[in-house]
Design a protein around this nucleic acid. Structure first.
Length: 497
RNA sequence: GGCGCGUUCGUCUAGCGGUCCAGGACACCGGCCUCUCACGUCGGUAACACGGGUUCGAGUCCCGUACGCGCUACCA
């Protein structure tokens, strides 16, 4: 059994796509599950699409996700370099080898000439540079040897094209889709080396996957159609192709492809579209584990009824044969649900640490660690997003300056001020200020005044927190402490009447 | 247009010929819990694209149609 080696091979286009992150995740999980190696290779062979900082961004997102490569531009490895732009001589070497062996040829046609040929062909829509047309073009198959030598010597721009044979059937056994076959008549003489000397994806990919000893290719379905070219390349080189698994695509809620252009700024789901940029979700405050968990579920399921998984758990149970074939639609509601689930299951200490840095970044001064911890515990079960903590728990750190108008209208009645003062006069006497005695005191006060407990509870909550929602009142009061509670009640009654 | 892939509740999915008048999750609706909001819990609405085969029996296998998506670049 040979070593499992997989790769994530993104091209740095400026941002990491949700689908790209899932591809990285699946590769990572497959490697971990099979004690294999996870390779990161940067496919930066398109100079026209070069984006400043794209590689750094990619690296930082992977790092954030915890999908650390075993080999890659940062960690190195014996199969490097891992940036294709640093491997140009390798591709050239292999392309030349194909030309020498007659599997590929030089083509000198300019884009304009090809366009002209297309227009003059019987059906411009189906025109291809292939076995049926290459004899009409300017290439080393139609030109004399001397002419070819002369053109090369004169540095006339050229590309190297793969000479795809006629009447062949290429069959792959995809790990997810089963057998898929293609007739060679539908594949064109793919450019291998562009006129700028850079390789195309197809050449670089095949060469690198072989040289880096990749055992399984796990990538998006958009690549399925180009597999025959790749298979033929492996054949020409005399190499064994890796096993392949083509993943279903991820779409917008309206069924369209997730595209960066669909999104204006950060607003999610403007019109049946969803932001494809992973960075947006990070910035929006989603939990790392929740995002990974969610995208893992887009195209894969565990087989039992469990859906909430940590990365570590996924590493144990992920398998390619539970990946399905049909495309998935990205659903923010489910992401949010999983986000809440992950916050809920987090170790309180860890959540506290996360929330503390969040709060401190927002300018909060946290003096009492233990107090902060108690507040966090109160809110953990009711946080859907960690950012909500800032608005929901603020009254624990500063006195409310405003009182929610809606709650005031609904809960603060004629007698509320009086009842709150009654309650206040009782709790002032308390020597033990815990939730049990507070509850007992409140209930007794209510009974003494002949009103339902709710008539005191709600106004008190509003007075102390400024809000109508939140954790249990007695827990809030206990945690705030006697002094603050007394001050706030007095102040609120003065303001609310 | 050509080629390829896909099609189970609104969404993610389970299902690998009978145990499926189709199960789970999100969302939605209702109940319980309860001082509120959540959490939790109980229940409800809701799907095998269509048409032919094969078979004693099809969501499950085959063919066709429709629809969707991908590829069809000197982009990946």
């Amino acid at each position: 059994m040979t070593m499992v080696r997989v790769r994530f091979a993104p091209s740095p286009t400026g941002f990491v796509h949700v689908g790209g992150l899932r591809t990285a995740l699946y590769n990572y999980l497959f490697a971990r599950r099979n004690n294999g190696v996870f390779v990161l290779r940067i496919e930066d062979t398109d100079r026209s699409r070069y984006v400043e900082g794209a590689v750094e961004n990619l690296l930082s997102v992977l790092d954030w996700a915890g999908l650390t490569p075993d080999e890659g531009p940062q960690q190195g490895g014996k199969y490097g370099p891992y940036l294709q732009s640093e491997r140009l001589d390798i591709y050239k070497h292999y392309a030349d080898r194909l030309v020498q062996q007659g599997f590929a040829y030089y083509a000198f046609d300019t884009p304009e000439e090809i366009e002209t040929a297309r227009q003059k062909s019987p059906d411009p829509r189906t025109f291809k540079y292939d076995a049926s047309t290459r004899s009409l073009m300017r290439n080393s198959l139609t030109l004399s040897e001397e002419e070819v030598r002369r053109l090369l010597a004169q540095k006339v721009p050229y590309v190297i094209r793969l000479k795809v044979p006629e009447n062949r059937i290429f069959v792959i056994t995809d790990l997810i889709r089963g057998e898929v076959s293609f007739h060679s008549s539908q594949v064109d003489d793919q450019v291998l080396i562009k006129s700028d000397g850079y390789p195309t994806y197809h050449l670089a990919n095949v060469v690198d996957d072989h040289l880096m000893e990749i055992s399984h290719i796990i990538r998006g379905e958009e690549w399925l159609s180009s597999v025959p070219k790749h298979l033929y390349l492996y054949e020409c080189f005399g190499w064994e192709p890796p096993l392949m698994a083509h993943l279903p695509l991820i779409f917008n809620p309206d069924g369209s492809k997730m595209s960066k252009r669909d999104i204006q700024s950060l607003s999610l789901m403007p019109s049946g579209k969803v932001d494809p940029d992973v960075q947006s979700y990070i910035q929006a405050g989603y939990e790392r584990e929740a995002i990974l968990n969610y995208i893992a579920l887009l195209g894969w399921s565990s087989g039992d009824d469990r859906e909430v998984f940590t990365l570590k758990e996924l590493e144990q149970i992920f398998s390619l044969d539970r990946v399905n074939k049909s495309p998935a639609i990205f659903d923010l509601a489910k992401l949010k649900h999983l986000n809440q689930q992950h916050i809920n299951r987090m170790e309180p200490e860890r959540l506290a640490a996360e929330l503390r840095s969040l709060a401190e970044n927002a300018g909060w001064a946290i003096e009492d660690e233990n107090y902060f911890m108690q507040v966090v515990k109160l809110f953990q079960p009711r946080l859907h997003m960690r950012n909500d903590f800032l608005t929901l728990s603020r009254y624990f750190f500063e006195e409310p300056t405003e009182y929610d108008a809606e709650t005031k209208a609904k809960r603060w009645k004629e007698d509320s001020g009086k009842l709150v003062l009654e309650f206040l006069s009782e709790i002032i006497k308390l020597t033990v200020f815990d939730k049990e005695s507070l509850e007992k005191t409140l209930l007794q006060t209510a009974e003494r005044c002949g009103v339902p407990a709710a008539k005191i509870i709600h106004p008190t909550r509003l007075a102390v927190t400024g809000m109508g929602i939140g954790p249990g009142l007695y827990e809030i009061l206990e945690l705030l402490g006697k002094e603050k509670v007394i001050n706030r009640l007095k102040r609120a009654v003065g303001i609310l009447g």
